[in-house]
């Protein structure tokens, strides 16, 4: 039984995030080589990218919460502005399950994320996303989050339909809350 190492690494990770959070407060997160705010906002592309890269953990509605994707924060309740959302997507949140989506976030001498480079991070302290995003794509996702997610109340039927579209029963739950028992059998062949 080897327990000490686990506890120690867990504690270090928590401690590490506090350090990073302090750095974030001081430095403002990602150095300001931010994607420029686009002209017309492409919300459909933003939704597509959000669905592919974010919805697993933050859920389709952005409210986050527990799940196999970790304990993701609510984007509906977030107070982050566009730059901060971009920083969080690009750099991740060290010590948590939020991965970085910029391929070179912690590479090179620039230390563009929280003033940190690979050498400053213990193994596993910050996780790489399954798929990296271009800076422009990160900006489009941020625009989608600000326009369609942030500040909205509890998700409802219209939100669901807006996200998934018609043609599926995925939003029916908002119209007909379930009671006990399985749904009625559909017609056979």
């Amino acid at each position: 039984m080897r327990r000490d190492g686990n506890t120690r690494s867990s504690s270090l990770l928590v401690l590490g995030w506090f350090v990073v959070a302090a750095l974030l407060a001081i430095t403002g997160g990602m150095a300001r080589a931010q994607p420029a705010a686009p002209g017309p906002v492409d919300l459909e592309l933003g939704k597509k990218l959000y669905r592919a890269n974010c919805a697993g953990c933050h859920k389709w509605h952005g409210n986050g919460g527990g799940g196999y994707g970790g304990d993701a924060l609510s984007l509906r309740h977030t107070t982050l502005d566009r730059d901060q959302v971009i920083t969080t997507i690009g750099c991740g949140r060290p010590g948590t399950g939020m991965p970085y989506h910029l391929r070179d976030a912690y590479e090179g001498d620039e230390k563009k994320c929280y003033g940190l480079g690979q050498k400053d991070l213990s193994p596993g302290m910050v996780l790489a996303a399954n798929a990296f995003l271009r800076p422009g794509e990160i900006g489009v996702i941020a625009d989608y989050v600000l326009a369609r997610v942030k500040g909205r109340g509890e998700p409802g039927y219209d939100d669901c339909l807006e996200f998934f579209g018609a043609g599926s029963r995925v939003c029916n739950i908002f119209k007909s809350p379930v009671e006990g028992g399985p749904a009625a059998a559909p017609p056979g062949k």
Binding site: L13, G66, G67, G69, G70, G97, L127
Partner: peptide, 11 residues
């Protein structure tokens, strides 16, 4: 909705 009381990560 997920009803898990938290979540895992894999460092």
């Amino acid at each position: 909705e997920f009803f898990t009381g938290g979540g895992p990560s894999n460092p």
